[in-house]
Design a protein around this nucleic acid. Structure first.
Lengths: 374, 374
DNA sequence: ACCCTAATTGAATCATCAT
DNA sequence: TATGATGATTCAATTAGGG
């Protein structure tokens, strides 16, 4: 199922979808065409000031020294590395695409500032609260019980990015999804182990986290890029949710583990993957269509829900209230003394049973008719 | 009780304790001696970049932060401002002192990176989760339900900073305090209002938040500095908790309001200066969590208790019945022809033993898991 | 005094399409 | 690219007011 490739085999002209590219992230990204990716999910290394030392953008090793100048130099090197991979991701991101980056306080502030400097526009920071974080053993700090994700568009004025607001709300007891998410860390059967029972990757992310990220910000069939693929959680969840993926990973051991893992994933069926659409994506229906189809007769009197206002429907699809005519929206706004109004939900008609119902219900009737007719 | 001073009256030699200094933060800090402050709590301007107005769905106007003090020409200008006040704070901070800075995604990444650049050493980032955040009115993003605080020492190898680990743990059901805190925003009687009933300051912080900050990272008698004093929450809480304070504030109106507020504060007796337990989080479980955690698989068919109705679970956390999708509650209501329905108790799944059980049982499983995180 | 409903409000980077 | 029309969109808490 998932192909493994080295950068040399790939070019923007060749198919890279559902592939793990082995190699350095910036170099490997050259194999991807401009503006081809819908969502980037990145879990970059933050081996900052730690025993492992720091890598330059060219992956050469920086000697860890505790001098003042070196500390500065180290942050600079990390920033340069961050700039390089973020710029490469930005090139391959569609104008309507979004990027997620996850990190901890060691690196997330530098990543966030760099994102802003490069022109990305932050939509949210989202906190992953861990149900079962590692305790603080020394008792010298608060238990580090969360990580931070930044969600951003490519550009400040980006329009048309995917956010499945309605579906998230419907799955969240009908209240909108907040910026703090609670999930367990990755343990148990989900955690990849090698033949000696040791964990394959030190920071394997839980699939539940990626599932919410991808359900929120992508559509079935979208292309998801993970430039630090690691154990392949992004690929596994993308495949299960009917999204395409490209993963980039330097270490052969991770590549192999991820490929095997993804191969075992069974994608969900089309029906289960349908995302609940919001009204925004529904076809537009003009008020005149209700008249033309006989659902509303000229001369009908419409009211607001509490019958404080009234208006009469004219044959041309306008409403008249207090002697002035206008669209359902304009008239609704005018009678209330407001700037704007959604006439579809404001104006009500009386049903045969005597109930007062919004004309939006009639629009729904029309939409169902339209759907049947194709 | 609290003295108000202009910088000209002050010098490092004169006593500045329990004083509000009116003036620019960097200039006013020159009045303070080197290494004299135990804790800095800073709530700098967030550099919100609001383009236009915002209306609620009912067309009422959202009173946004449009204060002059929050306007910066560019990220560069904001960074220069941040460097300047952080450097000034660093000079007056004791080698054993710590600094807190609060912000949102608009500014906190730049603040955090600057802290690191200047040599501060981050101990934790702490998330303030709001019980009652403002909604996202247009449904284009996640509800912005938290702010971030960074807690840092003056230097990388700082020793001897105050962290009342045992006291915090004792007040937290004997488990160590996590990095995610839950508090309501500042409203009601605590919120300072002017004679017209309008809020005095657009971003007044809750006293509970400051109380936990100061109880965690300071001792009675310590000196707490707030370089952006605003309505004086830091001073009020410091006085109540038996800490000394210095506040710096540019605007006379804020200075006056803060002075009056602090004057009315009654300090607690020594015996009462114990940690207050945090409010436990309200256990809300989204249906999507059952999917994300694998307790329910997409495609599962749910029934009511008597199997008169059926619905299919989709990956986005919605149910489909008779071709229409919606939340567990909405769908349960629709199939019964009712206005409302508790989907958790209405919809049932078949257990491995063949028993029909409400999905509420699965929610209980998740709740037990989540309870660990508060 | 009490209950129920309505109104108000909070650090917010909050639309899209046709012309 | 700018303008105007259409029409999509809110949660928790407190406070005020009516009965």
């Amino acid at each position: 199922m998932s192909r493994i490739a080295s950068p040399a085999e790939l070019s923007p002209e060749r198919e890279t979808v559902d592939t793990i590219i082995r190699g350095d992230c910036v170099a490997a990204l050259e194999a991807l065409p401009d503006r081809s990716v819908d969502v980037v999910f990145a879990d970059p290394p933050y081996n900052l000031q730690l025993s492992g030392g720091l890598q330059r953008p060219d992956q050469s090793h920086v000697d860890a020294v505790d001098d003042e100048w070196d500390r500065f130099a180290s942050f600079e090197a990390y920033d340069a590395f961050t700039r390089a991979w973020l710029l490469a991701c930005r090139r391959v991101l569609k104008p309507t695409g979004t990027i997620w980056v996850i990190g901890s306080y060691h690196n997330i502030f530098r990543v966030g500032a760099t994102l802003q400097d490069l022109g990305f526009w932050i939509l949210n920071d989202v906190v992953w609260r861990k149900t079962n974080p590692m305790p603080n053993f020394r008792g010298r700090r608060f238990q580090n019980a969360h990580e931070t994700m930044i969600w951003a568009t490519r550009d400040r004025d980006a329009r048309g990015y995917t956010f499945n607001y309605e579906a998230l709300k419907a799955g969240n007891d009908d209240v909108q999804m907040r910026s703090d998410w609670l999930f367990p860390i990755c343990t148990g059967g989900e955690r990849l182990k090698d033949e000696n029972g040791r964990k394959v990757h030190s920071t394997q992310k839980p699939e539940a986290l990626l599932a919410r990220v991808l359900m929120a910000s992508s559509k079935p069939g979208d292309l998801v890029l993970d430039p630090f693929f690691g154990s392949g959680t992004t690929g596994a969840v993308a495949k299960r949710l009917g999204r395409h993926y490209v993963g980039i990973e330097r270490e052969q051991a991770y590549v192999d583990a991820a490929a095997a893992r993804i191969a075992a994933v069974e994608p969900l069926g089309k029906a289960e993957l349908q995302v609940m659409p919001g009204k925004r994506s529904a076809p537009r229906v003009a008020f005149t269509v209700l008249l033309e189809s006989g659902l509303v007769a000229p001369g009908t009197v419409l009211h607001d829900a509490r019958e404080r206002y009234a208006a009469v429907v004219r044959a041309d699809g306008t409403l008249v209230a207090n002697g002035e005519a206008g669209s359902i929206h304009k008239t609704g706004a005018r009678v209330q003394g407001l700037d704007a109004c959604n006439g579809w939900t404001f104006w009500h008609f009386r049903t045969p049973e005597g109930r007062l119902a919004p004309i939006d219900e009639l629009r729904e009737v029309v939409r169902r008719e339209m759907a049947k007719a194709g």
